[in-house]
Each structure stands twice: as structure tokens, then as C-alpha cells.
């Protein structure tokens, strides 16, 4: 066997308040490197809040207070010497509604490269290569290679969402956060995104928030069940669904509430 699986995200006693409402309570979790981890739980349990902590999007709102520790790749991201710009470069995010920028497909993919590189380093050949690699990786290259200059907002929703994932890849992120990436998509689109996640697994740590328990079951390696701001259970997906340790998890999976 290879070396024990390492964790790429680790939180210790993470608490978060929106004003006086505590949305995360003592969350301590280790998310393993290169796996797909699903965050499940009923609405309002803090799944999305937890996800958004990992690239420090929450703190843009003035009334949010956070305590505790979040280590990504072994570095506490709340340390003063952490650069938000570099953090968000390594921790990418995919949103619920596909949000391609209203520019061409090509420019969408190289957008990150452009803002993170010196202009002199951006050779045309380098950009072309990045576009082809990224689009191949998300399975859009064959469909779009002849119309890279069309507007990204005119694509089908499924293609838009894939493009949003492709947009992260040229920056070589280590972690990809997905906030219900399939809720705006139909069956085909959902399946395509799930297959894409399997393709990306191993090279990226993927964390996906989902309301869809069936999706969590078929598309994740590990599962975290959250309830009312607390992390209830974290286990291999098969174990969590077949043999949950906590009665609250069992009841949620049976569909008794939520």
C-alpha cells in the first residue's frame, strides 16, 4: 500500500457566527487529499458556510466572526502572512448557477492565467495550450474547439458549468469547492458533471455540497453529515449510508426529517 492518505484540509474547533447566530459549532474535520468528499445535511445546517470558509469568501461580509483553525495543505489560512490572492488561486470554487463571464470561451479559460501572471510571460502558445488542456480535461474540447471565440454565456447550462470548472484548472488548484454544482442541471448534465468529477479525482481534492443524497452516495468517496452547525459524522460513503454510527445520521438517511 502507498503511504497513508494525507489530509489537504483540516479544521480544528471551527466556530462561525453571522452576527449573533452561530452557524458552525466546533467543527473539527480532516478532508483527505485527492478524494471526493460530499457535505450533506438538511437546509441551514452550515454545509455551504463551511465550504465558503475554505477560500475565505465569508469574511467579505462584515458581520461574520470566525474562530478556530483551518489548515489547507498544512498552512493555517487565517495566518497573517497568508495572501488571499494566492489562497484563492489554489482553492477554486464552482457555484450553484453556472457563472461564466460574458466573454468568449477562450478568454474565460485563460482569465485566471491573465490575472495571475506577468503580461510578458503570457505567450500565445502557452495560453492556447492551457485552453486545450483544460477543455480536454472537462470534456468540452471536441464540442467547442471550433468556436472558442463564441460568448460563453450562450452555451448550454451543462457546458457553462463545465467551463466554470475548466476556468479553475489553468491555475493548478489543489482544492476544488463545489456548491451544489448540479442543482441547475438536468439528468444528463448532472451525470456529465459527476463523470467529470471522477476524472478529476486524485489530482484535485474535491469538496461538494449537495442536497441530493443519491448524488452524494454515488459520486463521493467520503461523506460528512452536518446538522444545525455541527459535524455529526464523517465516514467512507458506503459506511455512512449502510452503517451509520450516529442515530441522527441514520434517521436523516432514512428520510425521517430534512
Amino acid at each position: 500500500m502507498s503511504a497513508p492518505v494525507q489530509s489537504s484540509i483540516a479544521t480544528r474547533n471551527l466556530n462561525l457566527w453571522y452576527g449573533s447566530f452561530q452557524a458552525l459549532i466546533n467543527v473539527t474535520v480532516d478532508i483527505k487529499d485527492g478524494l471526493i468528499t460530499a457535505l450533506i445535511g438538511p437546509s441551514g445546517c452550515g454545509k455551504t458556510t463551511l465550504l465558503r470558509c475554505f477560500n475565505r469568501v465569508n469574511e467579505r461580509y462584515g458581520y461574520v466572526t470566525t474562530t478556530g483553525e483551518i489548515k489547507i495543505l498544512g498552512k493555517n489560512i487565517y495566518d497573517p502572512d497568508v495572501s488571499l490572492i494566492e489562497l484563492r488561486k489554489s482553492v477554486g470554487m464552482v457555484f450553484q448557477r453556472p457563472n461564466p463571464l460574458p466573454i468568449s470561451v477562450y478568454e474565460n479559460v485563460v482569465f485566471g492565467l491573465r490575472i495571475h501572471s506577468e503580461r510578458s510571460q503570457l505567450k500565445r502558445s502557452l495560453l492556447d495550450e492551457a485552453v486545450e488542456t483544460s477543455l480536454r480535461e472537462v470534456g468540452l474540447w471536441e464540442d467547442l474547439k471550433d468556436r472558442l471565440d463564441t460568448k460563453a454565456t450562450g452555451l448550454q447550462l451543462e457546458q457553462q458549468q463545465k467551463l466554470c470548472i475548466a476556468r479553475l484548472l489553468p491555475l493548478k488548484p489543489r482544492v476544488i469547492l463545489m456548491d451544489e454544482p448540479c442543482s441547475a442541471l438536468d439528468v444528463e448534465g448532472t451525470r456529465a458533471i459527476e463523470e467529470l468529477m471522477f476524472g478529476l479525482k486524485g489530482r484535485y481534492t474535491i469538496l461538494i455540497v449537495t442536497h441530493n443524497m443519491a448524488q452524494a452516495r454515488r459520486a463521493s468517496d467520503e461523506c460528512i453529515f452536518m446538522l444545525l452547525g455541527e459535524m455529526v459524522e464523517h465516514a467512507r460513503t458506503e459506511k455512512l449510508f449502510l452503517n451509520p454510527a450516529d442515530p441522527r445520521t441514520a434517521e436523516y438517511i432514512e428520510g425521517r426529517y430534512g
Binding site: K75, S83, E86
Partner: peptide, 20 residues
């Protein structure tokens, strides 16, 4: 755990210039 990497997420000269 991965050993803490001192350089991860720290500012590069480019980032400093962008901040200016």
C-alpha cells in the same frame, strides 16, 4: 498531515505589485 510548507499561500512579488 502534510508537513507545513512555509511558502504555501505566501505573497509573491507579483502579488505585492498587484496589491500596490
Amino acid at each position: 498531515m502534510t508537513p507545513p510548507d512555509a511558502n504555501v499561500f505566501s505573497e509573491t512579488p507579483l502579488v505585492r505589485r498587484k496589491r500596490r
